[in-house]
Each structure stands twice: as C-alpha cells, then as structure tokens.
Design a protein around this nucleic acid. Structure first.
Lengths: 239, 239
DNA sequence: CTATTAAAAACAATCGTTCGATTGAAAAAA
DNA sequence: TTTTTTCAATCGAACGATTGTTTTTAATAG
C-alpha cells in the first residue's frame, strides 16, 4: 500500500529505489498547475484537465500532494523558491544601498532608479515571472492558502526594504505611517502595471511591451517615483 | 413555455400579471450574485448556493438570465448602471475642470486633489462600491464576458478624462505615450490601494480605513500624485 | 381561461478523491 | 551472475457528491 497514511510523499523522494521519473512527474505537475491556476484560479481548473496537461494520471496529484488543495499550496512554495534568485539579491541590494547612501540624496535617487527598473522588468517580462504575478494578485484580493506564504516571504521583506529607502529619501522613520503609505504607492504602482497589463497595452495601442517601448515605460514610471520621493532635482537626467 | 427562444426574460418584466414578487426576485438574485461573484469568482459560486442565498429556487436563475453566464453578464450591466450616479459626474467634473483651468497650474493642482480624493474614497469605502471593485479587478487580470463592458463604460472614459488633466499639467498632448503612461500610473496607484486593500491595512497595522486614518491616506497619495505631475510647488499646502 | 412566476424533481455531465493492481528498477539473496 | 524481493511510481476504474440545466407541475393575478 504505497499511499498509506504514515508514508506521505509530500516532498520529492526518489532515493534510488522504485520506478524512475518520479521527480520529473512531480515537477511537471507543479509547473503546469502554476500556469493553469494563475490563468483561471483554483476553481477554474479541474484535476483531470490538469493531469492531462501535465501528462500524468489523475491519481498522481493525490499521490504527490495529498489532493488539489495540497497542490495549490505546493505551487506557492515552489514559486517562492523559484523566484528567490531574483528576489533575494534585489531586496538585499536595496537594503545595502540605503546603508551605503546614508543621507546622500543623489545615491538614493540612483538606487530608486535601479529599484523601479528591476520591479518593472520583473513584472512586465514575458517569461515565468508573469504567471507568478497572476497567482500573487489573485491571493492579494482573495486570500486563501497561499496568502500567508506570500506575505511572509515576499510582501514583508520587499516592503521593509523599500520602506528603508523611502524613509531615507523623505527624512522620516521607516515605521511612520507616511513612510508605509508612500512605500505602498511606490510598489503598488509597479504592481499595477503587471495587474492591468492588458489594460495598459490597450491604452497604449501596443501588442506587447517588447514590441512597444519598454524603456520608455521604465523611464516614465521612474520619473514619477523620483518625484514622489522628492528626488527629481537630485537626479541626473535619464537618457 | 416561459423560456422559449423568442421570449427572453433578460430584462425586468412583471407587467402586473402572474405570481407576485417577479422584479423583487430578479433584483435579489442580481444583488446576491454580485457580492458572491466578487468574493469568490465565477467558478467559485454554484447556482444552488446562489439561489439559496438569494432565497429563490435554482431554476429562477435560468428563468430570468438564461443560465449562470447570462447572470454574470447581467451583474456587470447592473454594476455599470448602479455606479453611474457616482461615475458620470466624476468624469464630467474632470473634463470640465480641465477646460476651465486652461494652463492655470494652480487650478489643475486642486482638480488633481479632488480627483484623488474621489477615487480613493470610492475604492476604499466600506459599502457597495467595494465588491464592485472586486469584480472589476478580477476582470482586469482574467478577462471574460465582463471585460468589454467594463473597458467601454468605465476604463476608457475615466482614462480619457484623466489623460486630459495629465496632458494639461505636463504640457503634453493627451495622446502622447508619456501622457498615457502617467495616466496609468495615477489611476493605477489608486486602484492598487483597492486591489491590495488587505495588504495595505496589514502593513499599516490597521483594522479598517475607517478605524485608521483615511484622510491621511488621501493626503499622502495626493501629494504623490501632485509630485508626479509636477504640481507640488503650485499647490497650496494640504491641511 | 390565460399568462406569468415559482417550486420541485430529474437530467446528464463533471467534480475531487480513492482504490487495487501493475510497472520497472534498485537492493538483497542465491 | 542469476534470481528474488522490495518499493516508489503509475495506471484505469470507480466512488459519491455536486455541477449547470431542463422538465414538469403548481400557484397567482388579470
């Protein structure tokens, strides 16, 4: 009985024994589920369709993830892990940058430019990060099992880092409610471009940000961000 | 046969005859469906649960709306109608305000203040408008039947109006891509507060915007908006 | 009586989940 | 080396529950 209670294959195993390909199937389910859940939500995807898309049997989902809900949660954990190589250096660079800048407004301005560019290119990119945005936005407005994972691993670290930048730029405390609000403005503005991606493209008359002029988007949003922080005059003009 | 093809009870009828309560049942379904769809999405709500919540029989949904999909579309049409009393004066006031202001930056600044306040209070209010925001945000990122209705009746008119304000403030053309992008920043920023409502409250440590300090939110976002438009120095200080 | 509204019952389809059986390769025994 | 054992991995079939829809029947007002 491979599926009895004590033996829970929630994590990858494949310790040599048994049939090969286990990890591959698990990973394939995880990747497919991420895209489909992001596109149509938890209730919008059936286990059968998912299994078909991932080219596995329906029961494999229960085998690896204890059911649909477990799979959903696993997708978020995987998402966190996959985006760490982008996310962790970004937040670290901001935190370190604020320390290095001290009260040098010019350094803070270039750090802000760097932040906006990193956020927007992440949010507007064509590849993996995009459907991950979809999952996140869904959880933000309709919190389910994934929300706490996101809040703990993504939202809080990023907001804390950016709050440090905002506080330094506006000469306030990082905990001040004005700082928190301005941080929400800054990050929320970049997120809004990812959330309303289709809307923005429609308004611009573009087919995609690649076909259009992504640097111009970055430039405009960066100017707006610098202005919000009162760093516009401190900043050298952007090309 | 009340549901034959030519006789489509998509609109309210109740011409006096028949069993009483016709319009009431229809309106009750519509209101209940709006809240539930906003909360859990189209696939997250079953017709049976909906009928139970609206205190009608399941078949009544098919009778009035030709099925679940028809009900969903009807909810959006109703949403547009219900929010017209708030939306139409707002956009009209912006358009007229831009004409009246001409190139007077001070007038444009106070118009901007008025706009941000109107948007934020709409987006963050506790009442009806809130679940309507939920429906809209859902459609933005996962366009279904409601998207075209929203784009035509809400997005485009509001963006066109605000683009006029942005263009006047930054001395550009309303059609310029910089104008369009800045407009997306401005509106998107306010929408972000509605979309990530729970996130913002969590970061602020507030229970609700009423329990917290809504005017402070408005004030901070307004300053950010004025800065983005280069109108901060033109503006008298906010109390 | 006729038209309209409402409810109850039944419909086929699909849902998430579970089950026992089977596969194939590594590990152990011969 | 060959044979046997073990076990993760996979499969097909089926479960009961629930889905959206339709049909049938009852009730009410003009």
């Amino acid at each position: 009985m491979p599926n009895s209670d004590p033996v829970i294959p929630l994590e990858a195993r494949s310790q040599g024994r048994g049939r090969p390909g286990g990890d591959k199937s698990r990973a394939r389910i995880l990747a497919t589920a991420g895209e489909l859940f992001a596109e149509r939500g938890f209730n919008g995807v059936s286990t059968r369709e998912l299994a078909k898309a991932a080219d596995v049997n329906v029961s494999t989902i229960a085998y690896y993830f204890r059911g649909k809900k477990g799979l959903y949660r696993a997708v978020f954990k995987q998402l966190i892990e996959d985006t760490n190589p982008f996310f962790l250096p970004t937040t670290a660079h901001i935190c370190q940058g604020v320390i290095n800048a001290g009260s040098d407004k010019q350094k803070l301005a270039s750090l802000t430019r760097w932040l906006i560019q990193a956020l927007l290119e992440g949010v507007l990119s064509e590849d993996t990060i995009r459907w991950q945005m979809g999952l996140m936005l869904r959880e933000y407005h309709q919190p389910t099992d994934g929300f706490s994972i996101l809040m703990e691993n993504r939202v809080n670290p990023m907001h804390d880092a950016v709050a440090g930048l905002v506080a330094a730029a506006t000469d306030r405390e990082p905990e001040a409610s004005e700082t928190v609000l301005l941080t929400c403005c800054l990050i929320g503005q970049c997120m809004a471009f990812g959330a309303a991606r289709g809307l923005v493209l429609a308004r611009l008359g573009w087919d995609s940000f690649e076909a259009g002029d992504l640097p111009q988007v970055v430039d405009t949003v960066t100017r707006a961000a610098l202005a919000m922080l009162g760093l516009l005059e401190e900043s050298a003009d952007v090309a």
